[in-house]
Design a protein around this nucleic acid. Structure first.
Lengths: 108, 108
DNA sequence: GTTATAGTGCACCGAACGGTTCACTATACA
DNA sequence: TGTATAGTGAACCGTTCGGTGCACTATAAC
């Protein structure tokens, strides 16, 4: 019904600090795999796995140019993630307001 | 330097569909562990683990009342997650614009 | 054509994840 | 007081995760 949706994998992709740093790095300029691997102290294979996870949800797009593989930011649907968070931020505030007044009532 | 930050764990907590459903359920009304366990087809212990992960990042708050443990939405800092996504949505658009014009130039 | 460089495929490793079972404690209720 | 109910703790299990090493292919550069 709802398993392994893109939303799952997008949130998961964002849950790793190394992957978020890769995204920040790529938001400045495209880079090849080995250009990424070095600064992060990772193996080429290590970085390739991270990039694969990011590519899976379109956060990154790669293209083979010569013997290098260039990575750049991709057309990710961050709208879904953003929308989920925003919707629930609203539920939260409502809930918290109600809870606050409940506590107030009880403490009065 | 940056490992196991709250942001990591928040995104991770949101990456599981069952946990997101628990949050949606709680956004309607508080519930005890067994009230959650049933509908999700999970063991009491299964649901307890999910709730623990949500509680760890303040997405949920629990309180023991009688022999039951009541769960409700907590004061999570979704601002951080929302801010991260919004910032990078902006980088994305810039990047994609630049990439689009680069492609245009090359195809001309 | 040889050699250095960039990447790939695969197997492996320890740790964490999602989930269960079972034995146990604590509370409600008759 | 006894019994059913809600939760807890710990061990366990198969899978995935993050990361590595190694053998290999493909492209550059002399």
């Amino acid at each position: 019904m709802h398993y392994n949706e893109p939303l799952d994998r997008t949130f998961f992709a964002l849950s790793d600090p190394t992957r978020r740093e890769i995204l920040e790095r790529l938001s400045r300029a495209p880079a090849t795999l080995s250009q990424l691997a070095g600064p992060f102290g990772l193996t080429l294979n290590g970085v390739k796995k991270h990039v694969a996870i990011l590519e899976d949800v379109d956060l990154v797009v790669t293209e083979k140019v010569g013997r290098a593989r260039e990575c750049r930011l991709g057309p990710a649907q961050l709208e879904d993630a953003a929308r989920w968070i925003e919707q629930h931020r609203r539920s939260w505030e409502q809930r918290l307001d109600r809870f606050a007044s409940y506590v107030e009532d009880r403490e009065r």
